[in-house]
């Protein structure tokens, strides 16, 4: 009987001691991190396109921090999902196609001959990247455009196109070496030619 008591007592004592230790550690070594919303917002691509269903990247960041899914951002694509998964210690999941597909980067281009100067697109642009005034032709500042395509819908004469950014020697990226095509049983293809993946 007394052995059982001793054992229970010892366990209780241990539990109490470790509890105190843990409690102390929790207070003493508390990590003051950046607010998580800021960190999430920093990962999001800031296109402010609203494809996630929220009116901008910050609101979506807030939603994620409150437990919303991390796969609702088509402009960020898989890279953003992976980064979010890494940050929040979640499993990376594929992009939710309900919110759109991952597309190559585009910028808005206004066919200036057709523009009637209604300023609707200017009001729609979340980053003030369209220049113009009422009854004046509008134009897109390409370096500021995030490619969110929010300006396409409001245009009454459909004169806005989303065009992919051209690849020039200056923004060209080295492709990854083709991953060992001959590792597969076929034994075909000697030499790894650089792929034309622009």
């Amino acid at each position: 009987m007394s052995t059982i008591l001793t054992a229970v007592l010892a366990l209780l004592l241990l539990a109490a001691a470790f509890g105190l230790l843990l409690g102390y550690a929790a207070v003493r070594f508390r990590v003051e991190g950046d607010p998580i919303v800021e960190q999430i917002d920093a990962i999001l691509p800031q296109t402010q396109c609203g494809q996630c269903g929220y009116p901008g990247c910050k609101p979506y960041a807030e939603a994620i921090s409150n437990g919303d899914a991390i796969n609702k951002c088509p402009p960020g694509g898989q890279a953003t999902i992976d980064a979010l998964a890494d940050l929040l210690d979640l499993e990376p999941i594929p992009l939710d196609s309900e919110h759109g597909e991952e597309k190559p980067k585009t910028v808005a281009y206004i066919r200036e001959d057709e523009c009637i100067g209604c300023t609707k697109c200017i009001q729609a642009c979340p980053v003030d990247a369209i220049l113009g005034a009422a009854k004046q032709m509008h134009t897109v500042i390409i370096s500021e455009c995030t490619g969110c395509d929010l300006c396409v819908e409001p245009c009454p004469v459909d004169c806005i196109d989303m065009i992919p950014l051209p690849v020039t020697p200056n923004n060209w990226r080295w492709p990854a070496p083709v991953s060992d095509p001959s590792l597969i049983l076929t034994d075909r293809g000697r030499g790894h030619l650089m792929q034309e993946s622009a």
Partner: peptide, 13 residues
Amino acid sequence: KADHARIRFEARQ
């Protein structure tokens, strides 16, 4: 670019 866009978006907001 994203940071820049965020600044512009926030400025606009």
